[in-house]
């Protein structure tokens, strides 16, 4: 079954193109590609930084969907996260599972690392970022909303975990 005996990382872009062609779609998805990548240094040591968590998972009740059914930015308290998350999106459902939140949204892990002094602590809320085919929606609506919420929470940096 293995077509990759060298253990090279999976070529997900090519896999996805072939899969959607097999579904009968004629136009390949075009992934974003930037020449210039921004870079911002931490202003203070990591041990003094407040870090926000951002996930691609959704809330269990689907409350992040608007009237048209499109996903929007959502947030939850790191002190009282939902018991479960909606992970109904593209991940490897045949090879693993998402029953353990810490494997994709490491709230307890990060809090433990903060208690050990690696960083100052988590921002009070974690945030859900929609995975949207519209790059325009991401850049004009979702990302600005996430920035707004991070600033509200006094976050110095963000750890983004993609399912």
């Amino acid at each position: 079954m293995t077509d990759n005996p060298l253990g090279m990382p999976n070529a997900y872009m090519e896999r996805t193109r072939l899969y959607y062609r097999a579904l009968g779609y004629h136009n390949d998805y075009v992934w974003a590609n930037f020449d210039d990548i921004p870079f911002t240094r931490l202003e203070n040591p990591l041990s003094e930084a407040t870090v926000a968590l951002i996930t691609t998972a959704g809330p269990p009740d689907g409350s992040n969907r608007n009237a048209q059914g499109r996903r929007e930015v959502w947030s939850g308290a790191v002190a009282t996260p939902p018991d479960s998350f909606n992970t109904d999106m593209a991940w490897d459902k045949e090879s693993t599972h998402t029953d353990d939140r810490e494997s994709f949204l490491p709230i307890d892990t990060a809090r433990r690392l903060a208690s050990e002094g690696l960083f100052a602590g988590l921002a009070p809320r974690f945030h859900g970022a929609p995975t949207d085919y519209s790059q325009r929606k991401t850049m004009e609506q979702d990302a600005p909303e996430l920035l707004h919420r991070l600033r509200e929470d006094g976050a110095d940096a963000a750890l983004l975990t993609a399912l």
Partner: peptide, 19 residues
């Protein structure tokens, strides 16, 4: 997620992605 990281970074928030 990559787009979000770049947007936050361009607006003064350092980011790191795990994926």
């Amino acid at each position: 997620m990559s787009l979000v990281a770049n947007y936050l970074e361009a607006n003064g928030i350092p980011t790191v992605i795990i994926g």
